[in-house]
């Protein structure tokens, strides 16, 4: 740790705090108005701006649920299925791949690793055309499968797992398990996975959120109303004639889409914020 000979000038410290408060305000302000407006009815919202909540939270919620054009309940359900499945597949198979490349020596080990590192940041959009055609030919249009199955190959999650496994899995442990007659798969599931738990939890959260927020590919694959995920519903709301809309309902639907994530984030923030860099990036 650095020795501090002196503290910073108080005026400078004050300035730093003012900048931080300003940025924090920017980050929170819009969500504050969102929450406030989700508790006000259409008429109140049209009257203007308010810092104080209204009393229409429940009625807005009921109105959104009752709207046949926006199938919110099935939207939440579909989003939950896709996000949970993505999180499970991405973390399990990334850990498996990371362990495979870390613990075994084989000819294609190095090329396989270099290959994954090269595609680490390749966007899925570049192959969207072929992907949609493939999904069509597999008769999986308007199903949720194509939204989570590709998560089995998640290069960024793999990289995180690989960095983590390097720093926290002693090979002696694996060898001891082998001596005890543990099969390779059992060694992975019983010995390695428990050690990977912290990394898996962090990546499960990121994968879940990523899938929950994903819009581009789902919008190309899903057109059935009862298969739509939340981002597609939001987009549908945007393309509907906006002026005819009950603004209370609009704010409520946005609230439903983002507030659960914020609540989970606030509960787990310490792990998430630390997890952004945990093994993820070398200095």
């Amino acid at each position: 740790m650095r020795q501090k000979n002196e503290n910073a000038h108080p005026i400078f410290t004050l300035f730093v705090h003012l900048v931080l408060i300003f940025l924090a305000f920017l980050c929170l302000f819009f969500f504050y108005i969102l929450l406030i407006n989700s508790t006000r009815n259409h008429f109140d919202i049209q009257k203007g701006f308010s810092f104080l909540p209204g009393t229409s939270f429940v009625s807005n919620f009921k109105k959104v649920m009752a709207d046949a054009n926006i199938p919110v309940l099935s939207g939440i359900k579909n989003s939950l299925i896709v996000s949970s499945a993505s999180a499970i597949l991405a973390t399990y198979f990334s850990a498996l791949t990371a362990y495979g490349l870390y613990a075994y020596d084989f000819k294609l080990k190095k090329p396989a690793f270099v290959f994954i590192m090269l595609i680490l940041a390749m966007p899925t959009q570049v192959s969207a055309l072929g992907f949609v055609r493939l999904v069509d030919r597999m008769h999986m249009m308007n199903t949720l499968w194509p939204l989570f199955l590709p998560s089995i190959a998640a290069p960024a999650v793999f990289y995180f797992m690989y960095s983590y496994i390097q720093s926290s899995l002693p090979m002696e442990l694996v060898e001891a398990a082998r001596m005890d007659g543990c099969g390779e798969f059992m060694t992975f599931n019983r010995i390695v996975l428990p050690i990977m738990k912290p990394a898996m939890a962090v990546q499960a959260i990121f994968s879940f959120v990523g899938a929950w927020n994903n819009y581009f590919i789902p919008a190309l694959v899903i057109s059935d109303n009862n298969k739509k995920t939340l981002p597609i519903l939001i987009a549908a709301l945007r393309s509907a004639d906006f002026l005819k809309f009950d603004m209370g309902k609009v704010y409520m639907l946005i609230t439903i889409a983002i507030i659960p994530i914020i609540i989970v984030y606030l509960l787990l923030s310490r792990y998430i914020v630390d997890g952004v860099t945990l093994g993820g990036v070398k200095e």
Binding site: V209, N213, Y215, L230, I234, A235, A257, I258
Partner: peptide, 8 residues
């Protein structure tokens, strides 16, 4: 972590 479409 906010859904970009909802944020927009």
């Amino acid at each position: 972590l906010i859904m970009a479409s909802a944020f927009s």
